[in-house]
């Protein structure tokens, strides 16, 4: 059996595999350290999932905007979780907490930093990158020229027999 690995093409997938194994371990082991590791591993997985999803665009143009995009997401969410854990562990029972903008500090970090800033960053990055890196007229023309085929058609034009 030949291994199906191409390190340069598969780097983000391999990175995701490593992160998912760490997440699996921390879900089973638990504990405060496990919870902290799980939260940061989740952030890294989000970034890697986006990099997997944009790898084809990165190969055609440049990986820089997408690596930058992922790094920005990691920075925002990473800072959010760092602050969340800092304030949460200072007062895990939330007895007489210090309030920030209407919430105990750790809750305020979730509401004001983890909720919308990373979402706003990503949702407006998409249209910002769209025409230059994600979809343009040249690609559209290429797909318009392809004749739509039935769902079962294969490359050589024959009908698939399924698995065998």
């Amino acid at each position: 059996m030949t291994a199906n690995v191409n390190v340069s093409e598969d780097k983000y997938v391999l990175g995701s595999l490593l992160i998912l194994l760490i997440m699996l371990g921390t879900m089973i082991v638990g504990g405060t350290t496990g919870e902290i590791v799980f939260s940061f591993a989740t952030v890294l997985f989000f970034a890697l999932y986006i990099l997997i999803g944009t790898q084809s665009s990165a190969q055609q143009h440049s990986p820089k905007p997408f690596v930058g995009l992922a790094a920005g997401l990691v920075a925002i969410l990473g800072a959010g979780f760092a602050l969340l854990w800092y304030f949460h562990l200072q007062n895990p029972s939330y007895t007489d907490p210090t309030y920030w903008l209407g919430f105990p500090r750790a809750t305020a970090v979730v509401i004001y930093l983890i909720w919308m800033p990373p979402a706003l960053y990503l949702m407006f990055s998409y249209p910002y990158l769209f025409e230059k890196y994600i979809w343009n007229e040249e690609k559209a023309e290429q797909f318009r020229e392809m004749n739509t085929r039935p769902a079962k058609a294969v490359a050589d034009g024959g009908d698939s027999e399924g698995d065998e």
Binding site: Y49, I50, T54, P118, A119, M123, Y126
Partner: peptide, 15 residues
């Protein structure tokens, strides 16, 4: 509750 605003752009990038 906070997942969906982040999830939609990720879905758009990936799929």
């Amino acid at each position: 509750a906070i997942a969906a605003p982040l999830a939609f752009p990720i879905s758009w990038f990936v799929l």
